[in-house]
C-alpha cells in the first residue's frame, strides 16, 4: 500500500439474506482526496461506507483504514479507529433527546477531558463553521431539514476527524440548500484538510465536490477516475447515469470560454 493511501477496499463481498449487494468491490482512496461514490438506489453505496467505519462486517474481503483491517479489530481498537472518522448521516441522525449543543459536543464530552467552557467554545466554533448561530439550546425537532444537516455536519467535524463520510448530503434539500451544502463540504475539506468520502446520486453535487468519482454497478466499481474520465466512460449504464454531469462540465467549459 502506498504511503498516501488512507482507505483501501479489497475484494469486498456483502449480502443481506439472498440479496448480494457488494460482489468484489475494490477501491483505493488517497489521503486528502475528495472521493465521490455514485450509483443508483440500492447499489450498495451506504453499505460500502458502513464497512469503512465498521458498522458492518464484510462477508469476504477486507477494508483497510490507515493500515488497520477494520473487520478484524477488537472493540477497543475499533472505537479508537472510529475517532479518526466523522460521519454525516442522510437524515442527520441527531439525538432527539439532546440539544444541538449537546449533540455537537457529544464526542468532546465523552472522549476528552476538556472543561465545559472549552467544549462550549468548540461547539460554537463548529456551528459557526457550518453557518448556524444561536442554536445551541434548541432541540433537533425545532430545526429545518437543511439546518439539521448542518448541525449533523458540525457534530461530525467536532473532533477534527481525518476522514469525513457523507451519506447523501444533498438528498431531500432544495437546490439552493444543496448548493450551500456542497460549498460547505468543499470549504471544510480545505479548512480541515480531511479526506472525504461522499456517496450520492446527485450528479450536480458529485461534479462540484469530487476529485475522484467511483461508480458502483452490480456490486462492483464499474468506473473510477477523475470526473472528466468517468463522464467520458463508454459503459452504457455509466454514460446514462453521468449524462447530467457531462452536460454540466460542457456547459461550464462554454461559460469559461466566453
Amino acid at each position: 500500500m502506498a504511503d498516501d493511501t488512507i482507505i483501501q477496499v479489497i475484494d469486498l463481498y456483502k449480502a443481506f439474506g439472498a440479496k448480494a449487494v457488494l460482489t468484489g468491490a475494490n477501491l483505493t482512496i488517497t489521503r486528502g482526496e475528495s472521493m465521490v461514490v455514485i450509483g443508483g438506489s440500492g447499489s450498495g453505496k451506504s453499505v460500502l461506507i458502513k464497512h469503512m467505519i465498521g458498522l458492518l462486517k464484510p462477508d469476504a474481503g477486507r477494508v483497510i483504514v490507515d493500515g488497520k483491517e477494520v473487520g478484524a479489530l477488537n472493540e477497543t481498537d475499533l472505537n479508537d479507529l472510529r475517532r479518526k472518522f466523522g460521519m454525516l448521516f442522510q437524515g442527520a441522525a441527531l439525538f432527539d433527546s439532546l440539544t444541538i449543543g449537546e449533540n455537537v459536543g457529544f464526542a468532546l464530552k465523552e472522549h476528552t477531558s476538556l472543561p465545559r467552557r472549552d467544549r462550549e467554545k468548540i461547539v460554537t466554533e463548529k456551528l459557526d463553521m457550518v453557518g448556524l448561530y444561536n442554536v445551541e439550546n434548541l432541540k433537533p425537532a425545532e430545526l429545518s431539514g437543511g439546518m439539521k444537516k448542518r448541525a449533523g455536519l458540525a457534530r461530525a467535524i467536532a473532533m477534527e476527524p481525518e476522514i469525513i463520510l457523507y451519506d447523501e448530503p444533498t438528498t431531500g434539500l432544495d437546490p439552493v440548500m444543496c448548493d450551500q451544502i456542497n460549498e460547505l463540504i468543499i470549504s471544510l475539506q480545505k479548512k480541515i484538510g480531511a479526506t472525504t468520502v461522499t456517496i450520492t446520486h446527485d450528479m450536480v453535487s458529485a461534479n462540484k465536490i469530487a476529485d475522484t468519482i467511483a461508480m458502483l454497478l452490480d456490486g462492483k466499481f464499474a468506473a473510477v477516475g477523475k470526473p472528466d474520465e468517468v463522464f467520458a466512460s463508454k459503459i452504457p449504464e455509466v454514460m446514462e447515469f453521468c449524462y447530467i454531469g457531462k452536460v454540466l462540465r460542457e456547459t461550464e467549459a462554454i461559460y469559461k470560454r466566453n
Binding site: K50, I53, G54, L55, E75, N79, D80, R82, R83, F85, G86, M87, F89, Q90, G91, A93, L94, F95, D96, F106, A107, E110, H111, R155
Partner: peptide, 14 residues
C-alpha cells in the same frame, strides 16, 4: 430507523 444508534457507534460510544 433514523440511524441515531449507528451515529452513537460512529462517535465511539456503545
Amino acid at each position: 430507523v433514523t440511524e441515531q444508534i449507528d451515529a452513537l457507534y460512529t462517535l465511539s460510544a456503545d
